[in-house]
Design a protein around this nucleic acid. Structure first.
Lengths: 157, 157
DNA sequence: TAAGATTGACAGATCAATCTTG
DNA sequence: CAAGATTGATCTGTCAATCTTA
């Protein structure tokens, strides 16, 4: 009598790592949507703006050149130009031409921008603590190290 | 004499979980860019198309209704309508009106689409195996379970 | 009245070409 | 000629309104 599982030819589309990537996609985009919704409703700040302000606010002197910004975010330089345009219009960033190299433009956080990004960060962090509530300290450390190992060595843009 | 680290008021923007989310963003978008580049150059298939075809190909009868697709992907129904428009034009999907409920449209994988998605999946999986090469079996299991715990309970669209 | 799908108007990003400075 | 930043054309997705069927 026949025993065991009936299984056809294994299909490439059933590879477990493809499913893992799908999980990653779902986890990330779910979190992103949730975090975006909150920032939007609590401080009227689009998530992308927050990400820009965060990067700049963390940089020495709270300033970053446009090309650095586009390297740190997952955006093209053209995209960053327009994104910064809008943020400048809202008064959270300023464009300052660099003295040492006249090709360079600094994006600089304004006092108002500083205010807003700190407030947003507190809300953002609180929600992240909710999301990661089920994680032990060890889990978080392990998760961080795994993500680090997954970061692409160097993507050019 | 003063001892210890000099530290100012802790800033919300320095919360470690914010950094974790940044890592997640970088890891994910880096992988996504890399995987997209490969699929594009090897089989001329945009990553989003692949994701659509994958979901449909895995469903019973290789068919899925439009609203189910938009629920599984991180897209609005309007976005899916247009995405599927393009894929249909390329001959990888077909729209088939459902018999049991005339509001429903099935997205069905064509033979050509089946061909392409299998080939793409093989390439995709191979690259994922490279990316996860440093992960042990236990690591992968653990990573999967962490991602599962991070999936948003239920996002409405 | 609601659910499924589509559509028009629009927002936001990309790509390749361009301008300016090193 | 290369690097930094911007711009025009275009692509792709969202949002809210609409159409059809249950």
């Amino acid at each position: 009598m026949m025993q065991g599982k009936v299984m056809g030819v294994p299909r490439a589309i059933d590879d477990p790592l493809i499913t893992t990537f799908g999980r990653l996609l779902e986890a990330f985009s779910g979190m992103e949507r949730r975090l975006a919704r909150t920032l939007e409703s609590e401080v009227e700040l689009p998530l992308t703006w927050f990400e820009v302000l965060l990067r700049v606010a963390r940089s020495p002197d709270e300033r970053l050149m446009m090309s650095e910004l586009s390297a740190q975010l997952a955006f093209t330089t053209g995209g960053v130009t327009r994104l910064v345009d809008r943020i400048v219009e809202s008064g959270y960033l300023e464009r300052v031409p660099a003295a040492h190299d006249r090709r360079v433009i600094w994006a600089v956080v304004t006092p108002l921008g500083h205010e807003v990004v700190e407030q947003a960060a507190a809300i953002h962090a609180a929600e992240l603590h909710e999301i990661f509530a089920g994680f032990s300290k060890t889990d978080r450390r392990h998760f961080d190290s795994m993500l680090d190992r997954l970061r692409t060595p160097s993507a050019q843009r």
